[in-house]
Structures are given as C-alpha cells and as structure tokens.
Design a protein around this nucleic acid. Structure first.
Length: 278
DNA sequence: AGTCTAGCCTGGGAGC
DNA sequence: TGCTCCCAGGCTAGAC
C-alpha cells in the first residue's frame, strides 16, 4: 500500500520518465476516479499541457503543468507507468495520457480506489484534502514537542492518531506498526497518556523508518512497484508488519496480530507493554 | 468539536 | 470444482 516512501519513489521514477512530455490526448475509462472537475472538462483542460515537474505532499502526487496542477492519490493499488503506445495494455488501466512523442502515461488500479483532481496552477494547496494535511515528517516543524502536544489533545489510540494525516503526513498501516514497535509503544495506548520521552521516540523513529524506507525504494508487500516496474526492499527489514506468529527480533516472543480501527495491527507484547490501554 | 463507522472496490485465499 | 465469505486499507462523508 503506497505510504510516503512508496509515493516518493513513484515521484522520483516518474519524474525521470514523464517530465518534459506534452499531453496530446486523455482517455478516461473510469470517470468516477476523476473527482474534480468532471471527466470531460478534466480531459479537455489537459490537452496541450506539458508536465514540468512532479511534487509530493504527504501521500499525494502533484503534477505541475503549464496552467494546472494534477493531484493524484494512489490509495491502495494505484500505479503509474510510461509505455510506448504500441505496448500491450495491462488489465485495470483506467486513465491514459497520450504524449506528443508517441509514449503514454498509464494509470492502473485494480481496486479503483485512487483519485485525481485538477486545479488551477498554484491553487493545489487550496484543495481541501491537501489543505488539511499536517507537517511532513522531514519538515523542521515536526518536532518531538509538537508531536507530544498533539497527542496530548486526543483520547484516540496512539496508532489511530498517527494514521491521522492532520497530525503528521505520510504514515500508513505498515510503517506505523514499525515505528511503534521500535519506539516500544503499544498501538492501543491512549494518546494523551504518551509521555514526552515516548513522543520523542515515536518522533525519531517516524523520521528514521520513513527515511530508510525511501532509501530502499519502499516496501513491496502485495503488488507495489514503482513507475519503472521495480519492487522496493524495505519489506526485508520489517520487524512486525506481516510477521504474525514469528519470533520478535528483539526478544523472541511471538508477534501477535490484532485490530485497530478495523486495520490489521502487529505487536510484540513483550517489547510494547500493554498498560494504559483504552 | 472530536470521534467513529460505513462505503468505496476487486482479487485472492480459506472453508465447505 | 465451485460457491460464499472474509480480508487487504487510505480517505471521505455523514452520524453521533
């Protein structure tokens, strides 16, 4: 599932493949994924636009064009690739941007969860979903004190709070489990009981886990590949996610799987003590 | 205002 | 073999 490291890897590979190309036509096969404007004006607006650069904000990709910004969220399964128009089309291809040089940017998404928005250039951060985002984990404004203060204000379980992109952007279900394991904090701890010392650990591991995952090109758990079709390697160093029933790398206890707000959660109960639960 | 839940989607695996 | 059920989970809209 694309979280910050996967989206950043897609951004980098896609920049190499698509920057400088000009859109000649757009084919939208699944109009529902175009959230703003409607699919038809979306398509018309993009004709003749050149992709100058690709930015990332949280888990959103932002294509900077001549007059517009195209905002894309991959959600769980979305993938971009650049192909020659003669190449066979992969199943579940929902949007095709054909370039003037004969190549194509293809978006495919088995689950159809991904979204695209188009805004006037420079107005992308006014989009409600981007406007609401909290600091990037690598932003100097994301400090231990900030994180502790935000956690103090909520009664939610700490894992749920960390998945809230308003507090910090970029963590998803895989990396949040890894961060909390490394910080030795149980995911179901009430956020307001997290001490300044624990917040500092969570803060430090949020940064280091995401940075290492970016270096490794993300994690390939199910189907993730970057825009050049390559898998990430961070899954090789995951300590808890997807390791239910295996021995903890720190203490040898069995990793258990439970649920947090409907999501799978992986814990070592020995390393992540269970007091202060909701 | 803060928190929670249903819904969006499909493929793959388990169970019968 | 073939059917049904459940799970994967980021984000939003709407309810409480």
């Amino acid at each position: 599932m694309p979280e910050l490291p996967e989206v950043e890897t897609v951004r980098r590979t896609l920049t190499e493949l698509a920057a400088g190309k000009t859109i000649a036509s757009v084919d939208v096969r699944w109009p529902k994924m175009i959230k703003k404007p409607e699919a038809e004006p979306f398509r018309d607006a993009l004709l003749g636009e050149t992709i100058h650069s690709i930015d990332r904000r949280g888990k959103f990709l932002i294509f900077q064009l001549d007059h517009y910004a195209l905002i894309s969220h991959l959600r769980m399964e979305g993938k971009f690739s650049v192909n020659e128009s003669s190449e066979a089309e992969a199943p579940h291809t929902h949007v095709i941007f054909s370039f003037t040089d004969g190549s194509e940017l293809r978006y495919r998404d088995v689950r159809k969860f991904g979204t695209m928005h188009l805004t006037e250039k420079g107005m992308e951060h006014e989009l409600s979903s981007l406007k609401a985002l909290g600091p990037e984990p690598f932003d100097p404004r994301f400090t231990p004190d900030y994180l502790h203060a935000r956690l103090q204000k909520t009664s939610r379980q700490v894992k749920t709070a960390l998945l809230d992109q308003i507090i910090v952007t970029g963590l998803g279900n895989i990396y949040v489990d890894e961060v909390l394991f490394r910080a030795r904090v149980h995911p179901h701890r009430v956020s307001s009981t997290i001490t300044p010392e624990e917040a500092a650990q969570i803060h430090a591991y949020t940064i280091s886990v995401l940075a290492e995952a970016v270096e490794r090109g993300g994690s390939t758990i199910r189907t993730y590949v970057n825009s050049q079709g390559q898998k990430g390697t961070f899954q090789e160093v995951l300590n808890v996610y997807g390791r239910a029933g295996e021995a903890c790398v720190e203490c040898g206890a069995e990793i258990v799987k439970t649920k947090t707000a409907g999501r799978g959660t992986h814990i070592c109960l020995q390393c992540q003590p269970i007091e202060h639960l909701i």
